[in-house]
Design a protein around this nucleic acid. Sequence first.
DNA 1: CACGAGACCTGTTCGC
DNA 2: TGCGAACAGGTCTCGT
Length: 274
Amino acid sequence: MPELPEVETICRHLRDGNSANPSILGFIIKNTQVLWPRSLATPSVEEFSSRLPGQAIKQISRRGKFSILTLTTDTILIHLRMSGDLLVEAVDAAPAVHTRILVNFRNGMRLAFNDTRKFGRMWLVNEPELVTGDLGPEPLAPNFTADDLFKRLKATRRQLKPLLLDQTFLAGLGNIYVDESLNLAHLHPLENSQHINEQQTLCLWNSIRQVLNAAILRNGASIDWVYRGGDFQNYFRAYDREGKACLDCGAPIQRIKVGQRGTHFCPQCQQLSK
DNA sequence: CACGAGACCTGTTCGC
DNA sequence: TGCGAACAGGTCTCGT
């Protein structure tokens, strides 16, 4: 479910609290329960349960689609993949059907890692760079410039859609936000990165940041049964709008398959260069 | 190097 | 109504 805006929203809730729950900053871990061992990427269940008790949550941050919990001596990283979620709840509540890992705190609260499809993963490491080291730049970082993007586009010759989904190229975009960014920038998803000029790159750079910022303001998107409280789905330009009018020209949005992923674009506004 | 297919999983929706 | 197919916000690995 989650791409950068959704992960950012979840991290903010953990860090700042919300109407339902307090911030978990400062909470001290009492123990853990791994209900589905494969959800734990590393270390072993035994080591996970022995290293965590006594450590406090010192900091909560995000890198790409990773949620990062900086502890007293270690770091927990979580990737929610398609269907993961992080919830704060009382330790005495019955775990939800799809709860995979529980981190219980001394104060009677716990962090639940729920994940219907079991694709998500949690890591416990000393050095977070071991997990996030290959990620590309953070699209909203102040030091990520349009010129950086241009250089990266020129360093390869790939179709824009799969390229923007590649987390080593740029960190945090997923299927929704790539479609949204390309539509806003009027670039065809199959356009080759070599064909993009500086003008178009500036437009793409702006579009990506505009779309991500707008989505974060709306607390991300909620789709179908995977509901998170965000409402950016009501502002989609292309994603999940097959047959509906393009917001810029009125032509019907088209849906094609690119690298196994549903891809939505406007055949009028987003033309392939010859 | 770039791309497509298959795998990993469960649940919902679509089409006949 | 029922049932199988297709599809879902992600990423890894393998083959060409």
